[in-house]
Write a protein that binds this DNA or RNA. Structure first.
Length: 190
DNA sequence: GCGACAG
DNA sequence: ATCTTGTCGC
């Protein structure tokens, strides 16, 4: 595998297009709120800097680990045609996966960075994996398939991008977008 | 009514 | 997601 996942957040940052989200946030419907804008960003990139199109996209949200097995990372993957990995920072309780005692003990059993356990639906189907992304953080991230990638590759790739708990592409995109807002739109009050 | 709730 | 208070570690 030869992948360059760090580039995309850098490019998104340099792209700096402000958008206005209209759809409200409703758990389970994140894709309807965010997909159009993420897709547009990818399309701008393809048009302006095709050489920098990423080989894989890290999405801040779930892929198959979703009420209807089709979260934001799946929407963006299908519409862009690019491989996508879904990485959620919080557990979406879905299809028999709950924050149960059992779940908590599985988390406690994750000893070191790279350790993971499957998130299986009642049917037994693996919808994603809980990954201890670094030695330091005891709180896992939740990785699932978005598009054109297997769960295991997604998990390995995510771990390989974690300097801290959140994989660097997502962390940097988050960071730099907030920094952009701070410098260009300081404290808007009434 | 009560609990759950990716971002 | 946001806001806030406090603590630990480099």
């Amino acid at each position: 595998m030869r992948l360059c996942p760090l580039i995309f957040s850098q490019v998104l940052y340099e792209d700096s297009q402000m958008v206005t989200l209209t759809a409200p946030y409703i758990a389970g419907f994140l894709a309807f709120r965010e997909t159009p804008f993420l897709l547009e960003a990818l399309q701008r990139l393809e048009r302006n800097q095709p050489r920098l199109l990423p080989q894989v996209v890290f999405v801040d949200g779930n892929g198959l680990f979703h009420y209807r097995e089709f979260g934001l990372a799946c929407h963006l993957g299908v519409l862009s045609g690019l491989p996508c990995v879904g990485v959620a920072k919080n557990l979406l309780q879905v299809q028999g996966v709950y924050k149960s005692e059992e779940h908590q003990s599985k988390i406690a059993a994750l000893q070191k960075g790279g350790d993971s356990f499957p998130l299986a639906a009642a049917s037994g189907k693996v919808l994603g994996k809980a990954l201890r992304s670094s030695d330091k953080s005891s709180k896992p991230v939740y990785v699932s398939v978005g598009h054109k990638i297997s769960v295991d590759t997604a998990v390995h790739l995510t771990h390989s991008c974690c300097r801290y708990r959140v994989p660097e592409p997502i962390r940097q995109a988050d960071f730099r977008s907030r920094e952009y807002l701070r410098t260009h739109f300081p404290a808007a009050d009434t």
